[in-house]
Simulated scan of single mutants.
Amino acid sequence: MATKTQHQLSAAERDEMSDSTFAFPRVRKEPLNDARHVRNAIARFDQVRDVSDKERDEAFQRIKRAAKKFGVELSESSWHELGKPSPARKSSDKPRDDASKEQLYAEAKRRGIAGRSTMTKAELQRALRDR
Rank of each mutant, 00 (worst) to 15 (best):
D98H: 12
G71L: 03
K84G: 02
E30L: 15
T21A: 15
F70R: 02
S18D: 14
K94L: 11
F60A: 03
I113N: 05
I63L: 06
E73A: 12
L74I: 03
S100P: 04
D93V: 03
P31N: 08
G71R: 05
D98W: 04
T21W: 01
R14P: 09
E16H: 11
D50M: 08
I63E: 00
L104A: 10
V72S: 04
A106M: 09
K69W: 03
R28M: 09
R39N: 02
K109V: 15
A41R: 01
E107A: 14
L32T: 06
K94W: 02
A11C: 06
K84V: 08
R26N: 10
S18E: 14
A2V: 12
K4Y: 07
K109T: 13
E76C: 09
A11S: 14
M119E: 14
M119S: 06
A66N: 05
E30V: 02
R111P: 03
R116L: 14
E102H: 07
D19Y: 00
H80L: 12
Q6W: 03
H37E: 13
K54H: 13
F24A: 05
K64V: 00
T118G: 07
T118W: 11
D15W: 05
K29N: 08
P85Y: 01
S20V: 03
K94D: 09
S117V: 13
K64G: 02
G83V: 03
S92W: 03
A59F: 07
R62K: 15
P85I: 07
T21P: 01
R56F: 08
K68G: 02
R110V: 05
K101M: 06
D53Q: 15
V27Y: 02
R49A: 13
D46R: 05
A41P: 00
P85V: 09
F60E: 01
R65W: 00
N33S: 12
Q47I: 00
H80G: 09
A11Q: 13
S117G: 06
E16C: 13
R14H: 08
